[in-house]
Simulated scan of single mutants.
Amino acid sequence: MMRKQIWRLVPVALMLFLLSGCLGEENLTALDPKGPAAQWIYDNMLLSIAVMTFVSIVVFVIFFLVIFKFRRKDGDEELPKQVHGNTAMEITWTVIPIILLIILFIPTVTGTFDFHVNADPSEHEDAVYIKVTGHQYWWQFDYEEGFTAGQEVYIPAGEDVVFELNAEDVIHSFWVPALGGKIDNIPGVTNALTLNADEPGVYKGKCAELCGPSHALMDFKVIALERDEYDAWVEDMLAVEQEATAANAEAGYEAFQENACISCHAIGGQGMATGPALTNFGDRQTLAGVYDIDDDELLKEWIRDPQSLKQGNNMPAHPDISDEDLDAIVEYLRSLQVRGADQEY
């Protein structure tokens, strides 16, 4: 009785397994390529599936043919003639796999060299060049123009962007599934990756290397803009970097300094860079890379006790900060906008 009940659960388990593929985050998939590198990966996946399907069909056809044609029949009293060694067949089943491996080998190697490039900036004069540093558990993006962004990286759509990949602490892995493959960020080692977004949009990225207890929350976003919008964004970031940042939410700015936030978070060129730069915090879509940025209470909880939301991160807690200062800091952070609230992604 128990065995029958267990077997009844098999179709349900199979259905849940198949539907689990529908539960992934939007735009966090390699099956909907939005760039040349991702398209190359997708095409190679299809090629591999085609080769495996061909091999599987041939093997199963031969298997069932042998099973039915040469099975023992009623009245058979002697074993069939035993044949050992068939040079033609041995050559055939050796040559065919070699041909199939060559079919997979050529596009894999050529594509690898095309998209995994040298990190020397002088070799990429016509491309946007961005340095990426992985931290526990956030991403730092340094632009050639001389400013820094955190958690969200802006790029021009339709153009090659070279990411120079490093890590500050442990091994991380930079991965934007819709745009390309993953490359490790290794302390003391510089890797590089070329990505190109076919069209403007927001592309989700993740760390693909187990880097600690909050590895699953180490997300980021790639925001691709039209070239004129991207140039305007760069100019706005540079303008903020060059001017003193105390124009809006003055009380919040003072609280930000008094509570030592400025000692870790650079804003407009001021402050340290041991934590994510907050110059355009008000433009961001997420808090800490994963949470709702519009939730003030969540933002306050993050400032008071970041470990409760992202275990193992290096941001110190501020349990004694007053409610008045906390409200002022939140207001100040909301005011840090470069693109403006009326501009949509």
Rank of each mutant, 00 (worst) to 15 (best):
M1W: 11
M1V: 11
R3W: 13
W7Q: 10
V12Y: 07
L16V: 10
F17R: 04
L18R: 06
L23V: 01
L28K: 11
A30V: 09
K34D: 11
G35E: 02
Q39N: 10
I41D: 08
L47Y: 03
V51T: 05
V51M: 09
V58A: 13
V59H: 13
V61I: 15
I67M: 14
F68N: 00
R71P: 03
K73M: 09
D74I: 10
V83A: 11
T87Q: 13
A88V: 15
E90L: 14
T94H: 06
I98V: 15
I99C: 10
I106W: 00
P107C: 07
T108C: 03
T108K: 04
G111Q: 07
H116R: 14
N118A: 12
A119Y: 11
D120T: 02
D120H: 07
D126K: 12
A127P: 05
V128M: 06
I130A: 08
D142L: 08
E144K: 12
E145I: 08
T148R: 13
G150D: 02
Q151V: 11
I155D: 00
E159P: 04
F163H: 06
E164P: 04
L165I: 02
D169S: 14
H172C: 04
F174E: 06
W175T: 01
V176T: 04
I186S: 04
G188F: 04
V189F: 05
N191S: 03
D198Y: 09
P200L: 07
P200R: 02
K204E: 05
C207F: 09
A216V: 12
A216K: 10
K221S: 14
D228A: 13
E229C: 05
E235Y: 09
A239S: 14
E243C: 07
E243W: 01
T245E: 13
A246M: 13
A249L: 06
A249R: 02
E250C: 02
E250W: 04
A251Q: 15
Q257K: 12
N259Y: 06
S263Q: 14
C264N: 05
I267N: 00
G269C: 04
P276A: 10
I303K: 00
R304W: 01
R304Y: 08
S308I: 01
S308D: 10
L309Q: 08
N313K: 10
P316Q: 00
P316R: 04
P319N: 03
D320Y: 03
V330D: 01
E331H: 09
L333V: 10
R339Q: 12
R339G: 06
A341E: 15
